[in-house]
């Protein structure tokens, strides 16, 4: 029985990720936008909206922005601001669930494939290649075809598209980390394989995964809105930015705010996650620093 060597070395003081992110211009702006989006989504989920999002005000249909309705009303006299806030909750729910699922499934698959290697790795990655041979939106459409329109299908569709991407992103670093000397050292110490994988290999693959999560969230927002716009995602009367934008078609001349605000909301959300992803890449991957 060998005693575990104690770590006598002190770690060099590292600045927190948050602080480094805030000093990066993209990262800071992205963080602010994402925070605003999260807060709005939370308000929506708690029902903290100026009016109930489904409440119709028949006398106030298609009213422009005013003191009563700060962003105006839609064709049923529903308060647009309230629906936007609830739409944020909806987008957030779909994005977090789908990307969460994809991250979990993809990272598990990719890490196991990379760590075990050999034939298993080969088989798993060839199966992932099959998913890469279908354009993302088409794959999402196929999943929705099978499961039928709705919010759960949208979550699964986005997860199916992103699982192979996460598998690939997780596998790469695992392949190089598992050959490193400190992994051999853990093995010499007699640590169980599961512990080596979870405690020593996985943390070293986190940086590219975190960047990918941020970018995946932005794609998830776009796809939820896109599928809902086509009538295949979130179903009315539930508020979704995509549904709202789709409903504004044909009314644009009469009530341009119906198109404007959901459009701005989608763009700011996507922009936030994109910038956050760029910032995270700059901060976490020094090779990429200052390139974009």
């Amino acid at each position: 029985m060998i005693a575990k060597p104690e770590l006598a070395l002190e770690r060099p003081k590292e600045e927190s990720l948050l602080r480094r992110l805030l000093r990066n211009r993209s990262g800071a702006v992205g963080l602010v936008l994402v925070a605003a989006f999260l807060i709005t989504g939370l308000l929506g989920a708690l029902g903290a909206t100026p009016y109930p999002s489904l409440e119709q005000h028949p006398r106030d249909r298609l009213k422009g922005p005013s003191e009563t309705y700060i962003l105006g009303t839609d064709m049923f006299g529903r308060d647009l601001a309230s629906r936007l806030i609830e739409g944020a909750a909806n987008s957030l729910q779909v994005a977090l669930l789908s990307v969460g699922l994809a991250t979990l499934a993809g990272t598990t698959i990719g890490t196991i494939a990379g760590y075990i290697g050999g034939t298993l790795d080969n088989i798993i990655m060839r199966v992932m290649d099959i998913f890469f041979a279908l354009p993302a939106l088409l794959l999402a459409l196929l999943v929705v075809t099978v499961l039928g329109p709705g919010i759960n299908s949208t979550v699964l569709a986005i997860a199916v598209v992103y699982t192979p991407i996460f598998a690939r992103v997780a596998r790469g670093p695992v392949l190089s980390v598992k050959e490193m000397e400190f992994i051999t050292a853990t093995r010499c110490l007699g640590l169980p394989e599961s512990r080596i994988l979870l405690r020593h290999v996985l943390p070293n693959t986190l940086a590219p995964l975190i960047v990918q999560v941020s970018l995946a969230l932005s794609w998830a927002l776009l796809t939820e809105a896109g599928l809902s716009f086509l009538g295949l995602g979130t179903q009315p009367p539930r508020a979704s930015w995509g549904v709202m934008l789709s409903e504004s078609r044909g009314l644009a001349e009469l009530a341009p705010w119906l198109m404007l605000y959901p459009g701005i909301a989608i763009m700011l959300g996507v922009l936030g996650f994109n910038l956050l992803g760029d910032g995270l890449r700059d901060v976490l991957d020094p090779r990429m620093r200052g390139r974009m």
């Binding site: 932005s218 776009l222 809105a225 896109g226 716009f229 995509g242 934008l245 789709s246 504004s248 078609r249 644009a252 001349e253 341009p256 198109m259 459009g263 989608i266 763009m267 700011l268 996507v270 922009l271 994109n274």
Partner: peptide, 15 residues
């Protein structure tokens, strides 16, 4: 460009 979904741009152009 990267944040603008094509259904938004399309709707805007038509408008």
């Amino acid at each position: 460009g990267l944040a603008m979904p094509n259904f938004l741009l399309g709707t805007l152009i038509i408008y």
